[in-house]
């Protein structure tokens, strides 16, 4: 890794951690996820809801927080003319863009591990049972991986759109309206980033949600991320800042 790359990842990390919106989003997501885990744990039939089901089910909702995180990390550059400061300090755009995504992935992974771990622990208390360590680790790994990839995909979309509300609206419509509608009707929906990644965090899914194995699903979501990052990098290089 070049000197610049290491410095710029450090700068982007400093930038991300000093933005109040990122902490608030991560914290809000953690709290919401734990509360949902309590609700799912308490609502389940006695003996019918496993700790992992109750602990992981919130991911479907709390991914909103990671979508917001990805969008805000990118669109905050366009507030107060900060992007000009960024590009005069870090003028090689591909390196800068990728440095931002690397620092964001680190932040998202950390936030996701804490969020999912907390949800499983809380669910365990409510259900009055424990998940096996292997199952718990697998659940945390899959869910945190899915949430991190979703954050990166959201960031890349935001970098293409460059505005908070349109980027957020488009992503939320996809994940919560278009995605669920399509997956009930068409086979290609299996390969959309929300449906494809479902078994990464919810191994027991059935139907189209369960069509791809967790690893295949992860590969499909990763492919979407790579595609979106490639498009966003090209756009970022070509456009006037």
């Amino acid at each position: 890794m070049s000197h610049d790359t290491r410095r710029w990842i450090h700068a982007e990390t400093t930038k991300l951690w000093s933005l109040p919106a990122t902490h608030l989003t991560a914290l809000g997501t953690l709290v919401a996820s734990a509360m949902l885990a309590i609700a799912f744990g308490a609502a389940g039939r006695p003996g019918g809801t496993t700790v992992l089901d109750a602990g992981l089910a919130p991911v479907g909702y709390t991914q909103v927080g990671f979508i917001i995180l990805g969008v805000v990390a990118v669109t905050s550059e366009y507030s107060g003319g900060q992007l000009r400061t960024t590009l005069t300090a870090m003028p090689r755009r591909t390196t800068q863009h990728l440095a931002k995504l690397v620092s964001l992935a680190q932040f998202a992974l950390l936030a996701a591990v804490i969020t999912v771990l907390a949800s499983i622990v809380v669910a365990g208390v409510v259900v009055g049972d424990q998940a096996s360590l292997t199952e718990a680790l697998r659940g945390i790994g899959g869910a945190a991986g899915y949430l991190t990839l979703t954050t990166l995909l959201s960031a890349a979309v935001a970098a293409i759109v460059r505005r908070t509300i349109p980027a957020l609206a488009g992503l939320l419509v996809h994940y919560f309206i278009a995605g669920p509608l399509l997956r009930d009707r068409t086979d290609f929906a299996t390969y959309l980033p929300d449906t494809a990644g479902y078994r990464m965090w919810f191994p027991g899914a059935t139907g189209r949600l369960g069509a791809l194995s967790p690893l295949t699903g992860a590969a499909v979501v990763l492919a979407w991320v790579v595609l979106a990052v490639a498009v966003s990098t090209t756009a970022f290089r070509r456009r006037d800042a």
């Binding site: 000093s18 933005l19 919106a21 905050s76 507030s79 107060g80 003319g81 900060q82 000009r84």
Partner: peptide, 10 residues
């Protein structure tokens, strides 16, 4: 350049 070049919440 014009403005502060900084995000308002930092």
């Amino acid at each position: 350049l014009d403005g502060s070049g900084a995000h308002r919440s930092r």
